[in-house]
Amino acid sequence: MIRRLCGLALALALTAAAGAGTAQAETRTGQDTPGKRVYNGMQIAFGPDAPNLFCTIGAVGTDDHQRHIAISAGHCLGDPGKKYADREIPENVAPVYHRQDIGYGPIGYVRYFKDPEGSQTGHATKDYMVIELLPQVTLSSQGPYLKQTGEVKYPQGPVSPNALKPALDNERLLTTGNNEIITSGQTGVWYGTVMNNDNGIYRAPAPNKAGDSGGPVIWHVPGTDLPSQANNFQAAGPWAGITKAITLQLPPFNYTSSANILADLRAREAADPAHNIFGAGFEVTANP
């Protein structure tokens, strides 16, 4: 099922990538003002001079070290020299800006992004990015259209290919044909049935376009309201993933599951001698 709610024409899914190795932090006076709100659906740029090379935040919250964290798509950054991809990045070499408020300065810094390993649409199962947000920003669960209520837990679902054993409930995948996801982006808010699950990459007839990569996906909790004109196109539900790509398969719109992201974060934390991986133990903020 698909509904066009307030959409425009579709475009290519893959956003142009900014170079991680060349990004430089800048000090702006806006950072001295506390309380800037960061939320799912916020458009982000990776350099003050390139606002048209942008992606979108999929979820914000905290990790198990109580750091402020945002999740987006790994393919939003490129690293031809393989200097920063696939490792923790404690250096502030890849600042992240609110696209509509570049003058504020960086709202955070990329701490990890997965190399696509030759894919034009991001890594097959681990296409995500971890951003450490500045401690003075205010985290919000309320995006322009979607309010996120924790993370989806689906104990009856198949296990993410990235999960350790035993898998946690939030590392299990939505089954196809009987689950709907709701997404939002530049063309509005959409929903559709999960028609295919390929190792934790969902395909659904819920459109996305260039720049939406990394943006929010929630699970439609059965019995709750779908977005419509009657509720100003708003919806609430647990975080279920992020926007990934448009491909030639049908339906063409691809989404990386939250289960794949959370499972990989936990696996990388378990393998780290210091058990200090940015984003591990991620939980969506409960702040309104």
Rank of each mutant, 00 (worst) to 15 (best):
R111Y: 05
L133M: 08
P80H: 10
I71D: 03
D212I: 01
L14T: 11
Q229Y: 10
P273I: 11
H275R: 15
F282P: 03
R172E: 10
V221R: 07
G122V: 10
P90W: 11
A9K: 03
D63Q: 04
G223P: 06
L77F: 14
W219Y: 14
G200C: 07
N232V: 09
P222N: 10
T22K: 12
R203D: 08
I89N: 05
G122F: 02
E283N: 14
T256K: 01
S184D: 04
M1T: 15
A167H: 07
M129V: 06
A70M: 02
G21F: 06
G281D: 09
I201H: 01
L226A: 00
I2W: 09
R203L: 13
P158E: 07
K153Q: 14
H68E: 03
A206E: 05
Q120L: 14
A16H: 13
P288D: 14
E117F: 11
P216S: 00
A163G: 02
T125R: 05
P216E: 02
Y191N: 11
D49F: 13
G177Y: 05
L262M: 11
A235D: 05
N40I: 04
G214M: 12
T125A: 05
A267Q: 13
S140E: 08
P251A: 08
Q136R: 09
A210M: 12
P205D: 15
A204P: 02
